[in-house]
């Protein structure tokens, strides 16, 4: 059940591989770590490959991102279960900052934005990343995250408000202008 014949493999390469960036981006922001995102995105692509025969056609990016999102949640459930328990009014503690990535961020405004995004609860973060960085429609976001469209809307409005207040904190406006 795990093998793909040559024709399906070609189809997979043509349809799915162009969305590896989207897969990695979603995993990176859900897991708040590039290193973990590399592992989990690879696992998700492998899983997508296994289920490719089940793909009925349609929005292949949404189909792939749904698998990525589910794989991320399983991974978090195993490795950082408390992160998924975060209530929506709470903020997450930032991941340890001394990763090569955050040190490489020369721009302080970008660093602050990264932190602000990473402290959002997982669901709000997913919805915001899918909308603003991936340009997904509400319908696509609902399909990817398995939440109703009404919840997509309210999550998005709360996520934007939270991010906005983090961005306009005193002392931050100058940094934003420098972006």
């Amino acid at each position: 059940m795990n093998d793909l014949d040559a024709e399906n493999r070609l189809r997979f390469e043509q349809l799915v591989l162009p969305h590896v960036d989207a897969a990695f981006n979603l995993a990176r922001w859900l897991l708040r770590s590039r290193a973990d995102a590399e592992d989990v995105a690879q696992e998700a692509l492998l899983r997508a490959c296994r289920f490719f025969r089940g793909f009925q056609g349609g929005d292949v990016r949404a189909w792939l991102l749904q698998i990525v999102r589910n794989t991320c949640y399983s991974w978090l459930d195993k490795n950082r279960p408390r992160e998924l328990m975060v209530e929506f009014h709470e903020e997450l503690h930032p991941q340890p900052a001394a990763t090569p990535e955050s040190m490489a961020i020369a721009d302080e405004g970008r660093e602050r934005l990264t932190r602000a995004l990473e402290t959002l609860p997982p669901r709000h973060r997913a919805v915001l990343v899918l909308r603003e960085l991936e340009g997904c429609s509400y319908k696509e976001i609902a399909a990817i995250t398995s939440i109703p469209i009404g919840t997509v809307m309210s999550s998005l409005s709360r996520a934007r408000r939270q991010l906005h207040s983090a961005l306009v904190n005193p002392g931050c406006k100058e940094l934003l202008r420098g972006l």
Binding site: N25, G109, R110, L113, L117, H164, V168, L176, L179
Partner: peptide, 18 residues
């Protein structure tokens, strides 16, 4: 405010390419 958030996210190049 919505504009500011979108603008900041998109102009900061925080999209993580594989």
């Amino acid at each position: 405010a919505c504009d500011l958030v979108r603008d900041s996210l998109q102009r900061s190049h925080i999209y993580a390419h594989a």
